[in-house]
Amino acid sequence: MDLVDRALAGEARALARLATHVEDHDTTGRTAIERLYSLTGNAHVVGVTGSPGVGKSTLANKLVAEFRRDQRRVAVIAIDPSSPLSGGATLGDRIRMLDQYADDQVFVRSVAARGHHGGLSATTGDLIHLFDATGYDPILVETVGVGQGEVEISKLAHTSLVLQSPGTGDDIQAIKAGILEIADIFVVTKSDFPGAQQLQHVLTTMLEQGRETRPVDTAWSPPVVLVDASRGEGVERLVERITAHREHLLRGDGWAERNRRRAWTEIQAALHRAVEEASSEEPSHVAKQALRAVMDRAITPRAAATQVLRDADFG
């Protein structure tokens, strides 16, 4: 029994160790994903995004509890930023996710972004595959606390929750491009704070104004759900909306479409990585040969690039 077999048999320690290898993108991690990929495709991937302090972890904690009522095994991937200076990170999401610590059907993993931009880590997609293959469904992905433009989560998740809290802007903020456009469900957090209902109204109005011109799935009107996650209020209703969105996707071609989008995003990422490596590192054996051929005017630089890329390591 190697790590993959043990993780598939439900051994949490093996799964945790595999997650480390996947995060490090080392040989073991890559081999594991190669072996597990055919088992994926079952989990509902739910993104939780919004600005720092809006309440993502607190909400995730309550969502997990709500999903557990249906006996589903839940995984949480909680991402925090890495220091651009030291490369280190303080991963502090878990502190708010301790309610289910004794429940062995809940797996929480804190992840550092490691320099990746867009609100996720470079290996988030593979971590999703790992939890998907080992029977976790749903998988919650909590992004780095983001501002306005970090929308990568919408390419990996089936359902994106965009969190907003009262007191953070007027109705012009609500028609800006970016994160508000990717929401499948809006969540107004801290519903006990002044201005929460006003924010709900602003978002609802924004959505109604955009009904005809929205460039995405027009058959689904994103609901705006008020929650007070620290007290658990509104969470049950939110889970109903999440489930309704999943059913909506499955009824039409939305589910397949989002899976296709996710797969293409991952293919693109692998391509980018390979090109970057092939062009930035010390020339490989093939590259050196191609370089020599260019020097001899035997082939063009463009033809050499083709040869190098054919030999590239797609990690």
Partner: peptide, 20 residues
């Protein structure tokens, strides 16, 4: 300090039981 030294630090806060 550990973050500044390049480690990834998971901080779980107060009142942790041995099981947690």
């Amino acid at each position: 300090a550990l973050r500044d030294a390049g480690f990834e630090v998971i901080y779980t806060g107060l009142f942790q039981t041995p099981e947690m």
